[in-house]
Amino acid sequence: MALINTPIKPFKATAYKEGKFVDISDTDTKGKWSIFFFYPADFTFVCPTELEDLAGIYPTLKDLNVEVYSVSTDTHFSHKAWHDTSPAIGKINYYMVGDQSGTITNNFDVMRPGVGLADRATFLVDPEGIIQFMEITSEGVGRNASELLRKVKAAQYVASHPGEVCPAKWEEGEKTLAPSLDLVGKI
């Protein structure tokens, strides 16, 4: 899974967003940061807690020029039904992508073999369509939207400040590092 620093592959799909079905493709991601947030299935248990948590930071992500694409192998019709019936999922304003063909899930190499469901996985894609970050967790381990937001800010900082890197637990406004020969062995 050597996907870091590789371009995303072409795709087309239908998503549910803000009461409408919309067609999307890889070209919609160009020129802005994108989060692909894969989850196993609608109407499950950990997934709605994660998606609701992500919905809470979506306005902040939009302010950072980041679009969110939640993706499962369910249909866009199932996404609408879930959105209409679940109080947690009803809070979502980002794209809920139906990937019943598995194209997007396979493009990101997170399809569970023989199961037809996506792994619990997150990818951050830069405005040029290059994967900058990925995280995959086991079925029972939910993700944290606040930590994802921190990592997005770090990736954006590094992209706009060549020669600097963000150390562990870096938060916006904190000191960064400038790797050099003089720094070797001094951290």
Rank of each mutant, 00 (worst) to 15 (best):
P127S: 00
K30G: 00
Y58K: 09
V46R: 06
F77M: 14
T6P: 06
G129K: 12
H83E: 01
A2F: 11
I130E: 11
K151I: 14
S70C: 07
T137Q: 15
K186T: 11
S146M: 09
E171G: 06
V68L: 02
L64I: 02
G116S: 14
T44H: 01
V184T: 11
E139A: 13
L124I: 05
Y39I: 09
Q156F: 06
V110D: 05
Y157W: 14
P87G: 03
R120K: 10
L177H: 11
T105G: 11
L124D: 01
I89V: 04
G114V: 00
L54C: 02
R120W: 05
F37Y: 15
D99H: 08
N5S: 13
A81H: 00
S101A: 14
N5R: 02
D182Q: 05
S146Y: 07
M96V: 05
D26F: 02
W33D: 08
K151S: 07
R112D: 01
D74A: 07
K175P: 07
E174I: 01
V46N: 05
F108Q: 03
H79C: 10
E67A: 15
V158K: 13
N107R: 08
S101L: 12
P7A: 12
F45L: 11
T29F: 08
F36M: 05
T60N: 06
G19N: 05
L148S: 08
L64H: 14
G140I: 14
S180Q: 13
G129R: 06
F77W: 09
D109Y: 15
I4C: 15
I104K: 02
T73Y: 13
C47V: 00
G98L: 00
T103E: 10
E50C: 04
G163E: 09
F38P: 06
N144D: 05
I24C: 02
V141K: 09
E52G: 09
V158L: 13
E164C: 12
F108A: 08
K169E: 00
E164Q: 15
W33E: 02
P48G: 03
E18C: 13
D119S: 13
L148K: 03
F133L: 03
D53L: 03
M96R: 04
A2R: 12
K17W: 12
R143A: 09
V125C: 02
L177Q: 03
I187C: 08
L183C: 12
K32M: 07
A41C: 09
L3Y: 08
F77P: 13
V141P: 00
L177Y: 10
K30R: 05
P167S: 11
T60H: 12
C47P: 02
V66G: 04
S138V: 01
F21R: 09
T105L: 14
A121D: 07
A168L: 08
V141Q: 12
E50T: 11
N106D: 05
H83S: 02
H161L: 04
L117I: 11
W33A: 03
A154C: 07
A2D: 13
